[in-house]
Simulated scan of single mutants.
Amino acid sequence: MGTDAEKVAGQQRLDRLLRTGCALLWPAPPGSTPLTGGQQVTLTAPSRSGQPIARTATAALAART
């Protein structure tokens, strides 16, 4: 993910979203590192990404209630 300045700006945006109750899914290849507060979804086979994304989204929403 981008430069240090881009990472800082991205984290600031995510922090603002988190404060409002929004959750972030971070679909990524194995070994990537999400920003703090993001729910990482590791995708090893894009054609089979529906279930992992749905499980992570459900967990993220449940954590917010």
Rank of each mutant, 00 (worst) to 15 (best):
G2K: 08
T3W: 02
T3E: 06
D4R: 04
D4L: 08
A5T: 09
A5C: 01
A5N: 01
E6H: 09
E6V: 07
K7Q: 09
V8S: 06
V8Q: 10
V8W: 04
V8D: 11
A9V: 08
A9Q: 09
G10K: 13
Q11I: 10
Q11N: 11
Q11T: 02
Q11L: 09
Q12Y: 09
Q12F: 03
Q12P: 00
Q12G: 04
Q12R: 13
Q12M: 05
Q12T: 06
R13D: 03
R13P: 01
R13F: 07
R13G: 03
L14H: 13
L14D: 01
D15P: 09
D15Q: 04
R16Y: 07
R16H: 01
L17H: 08
L17I: 05
L18P: 05
R19G: 06
R19N: 02
T20C: 02
T20L: 15
T20F: 04
T20H: 11
T20Y: 08
G21R: 08
C22H: 02
C22P: 00
A23Q: 09
L25H: 14
W26A: 14
W26G: 05
W26D: 14
P27S: 10
P27R: 09
P27D: 07
P27Y: 03
A28S: 14
A28P: 07
P29H: 12
P29A: 13
P29L: 08
P29V: 06
P30Q: 13
G31Y: 04
G31M: 11
S32T: 15
S32Y: 07
T33Y: 03
T33V: 13
P34L: 02
L35G: 04
L35E: 02
T36Q: 15
T36I: 07
G37T: 07
G38Q: 10
G38F: 00
Q39F: 13
Q40E: 12
Q40Y: 00
Q40S: 14
T42E: 15
T42L: 14
L43E: 08
L43F: 06
L43C: 14
L43S: 07
T44V: 12
T44H: 06
T44A: 12
A45R: 14
A45Q: 13
A45M: 11
A45L: 11
A45P: 06
S47H: 03
S47I: 01
S47W: 07
R48H: 05
S49H: 01
S49P: 03
S49L: 10
P52K: 00
I53T: 04
A54G: 01
R55G: 00
R55C: 01
T56L: 13
T56Q: 15
A57N: 05
T58M: 05
A59V: 04
A59R: 14
A60I: 14
A60Q: 11
A60C: 07
A60M: 14
A63K: 12
R64N: 03
R64D: 07
R64M: 12
R64H: 13
T65N: 11
T65I: 03
